[in-house]
């Protein structure tokens, strides 16, 4: 399926990097260099540069919608008025964690939680990251709970090895095609990448 099209990417963080690499491979392309990984604001500042590079080669830029807007189009317009034809500028609704929750079966097995505790409509969640942490909190495995949920007093939203656990999940278990059935923003991202891959 892979036709060797190399797609560069820019993302917010290290979990997003694992996600975008998996999605690119799923769309039949090869992940190239992955840029950013220093938060959302960093991407906002550099978006013109990525867009400029996308005039010559295929790119995907993935950002979380968070609570910045009600839906993706206003964010896309506000960030970049004229995207280059080779750029997939995609927004995860509302956070990339929602994409992971959309593969209910695999996530339940990985976190060792009951399937019916995983939200059926992940894109409807106001704060998917907190929802993910809460799922981990109910895990039957102590290692998952300790890695993913914050200690009292840490002042952080996530546990000490939250990201590396999610990266492990994404790289070994997560199925983008299954997840796309419950997540429209993921489905659109895959479609866009497929168009890029075919166009090359």
């Amino acid at each position: 399926m892979a036709n060797g099209t190399v797609v560069s990417a820019a993302v917010e963080g290290i979990v997003d990097e694992a996600v975008v690499r998996t999605v690119i491979a799923h769309a039949g392309a090869v992940a190239g260099d992955v840029y950013g990984k220093q938060g959302k604001e960093y991407l906002r500042q550099k978006i013109a540069g990525y867009n400029n590079a996308a005039r010559r080669s295929p790119w995907i830029v993935l950002v979380d919608l968070d609570r910045e807007q009600e839906c993706p189009p206003p964010l896309l317009n506000a960030w970049l008025a004229q995207p280059a034809p080779n750029l997939c500028f995609r927004v995860a609704v509302r956070e990339v964690e929602a994409w992971l929750m959309a593969d209910v079966e695999r996530l339940a097995a990985f976190l060792r939680v009951a399937r019916n505790t995983i939200p059926a409509n992940p894109e409807g969640l106001d704060d998917p990251k907190t929802a993910m942490v809460n799922l981990a909190r109910s895990s039957k495995r102590m290692a998952i709970r300790e890695d993913m949920t914050p200690r009292p007093g840490s002042g952080r939203q996530v546990g000490p090895a939250y990201s590396s656990r999610l990266i492990e999940f994404v790289s070994s278990f997560w199925r983008p095609d299954v997840a796309a059935m419950r997540s429209d923003s993921l489905r659109r991202a895959i479609d866009c990448l497929r168009r890029l891959t075919v166009a090359q």
């Binding site: 963080g13 220093q38 914050p150 200690r151 007093g153 840490s154 002042g155 952080r156 939203q157 996530v158 546990g159 000490p160 090895a161 939250y162 990201s163």
Partner: peptide, 10 residues
């Protein structure tokens, strides 16, 4: 220090 799992008490 960019790691989001580092506690402020750490």
């Amino acid at each position: 220090l960019r790691d989001e799992g580092i506690g402020l008490d750490e």
